[in-house]
Simulated scan of single mutants.
Amino acid sequence: MVAVSLGTETNGSIICPADHNSVIGFKPTVGLTSRAGVIPISPRQDSVGTVSDAVYVLDAIVGFDPRDSQAIEEASKFIPNGGYKQFFNKDGLTGKRLGVVRNPFSYFYNESTAILAFEAHLNTLRQRGAILVDNLEKENIDIIMDPNECGESTALLAELKLNINGYLRELTSSPVRSLADIIAFNLNSSDLRRLMNMDRKSLWHQR
Rank of each mutant, 00 (worst) to 15 (best):
V4F: 09
S5F: 03
E9Y: 09
N11K: 10
I15S: 06
I15E: 00
A18T: 03
D19L: 14
H20W: 15
H20G: 09
N21Y: 10
S22Y: 11
S22D: 14
V23R: 06
G25A: 04
T33F: 04
S34E: 03
A36M: 05
P40I: 10
R44T: 14
V48C: 08
T50S: 12
S52W: 02
V57R: 03
L58N: 07
V62R: 04
Q70S: 12
I72N: 05
A75Y: 06
S76D: 14
N81T: 14
G82Q: 02
K85Q: 11
L93N: 01
V100H: 01
Y109P: 00
Y109E: 07
S112L: 04
T113G: 14
A120K: 13
A120W: 01
H121C: 13
H121M: 14
N123V: 13
L125Y: 11
R126D: 10
Q127N: 14
R128Y: 11
G129I: 07
G129T: 08
G129Q: 08
A130D: 05
L132E: 04
D134M: 12
E139W: 12
D142G: 08
P147N: 09
N148C: 05
E149A: 15
C150I: 15
T154P: 00
L156K: 08
L162Q: 15
Y167P: 01
R169K: 15
E170L: 08
L171A: 04
T172F: 00
V176Q: 04
I182F: 02
I183E: 10
F185S: 01
N186G: 06
R200H: 05
K201Y: 08
K201Q: 13
S202A: 12
L203V: 03
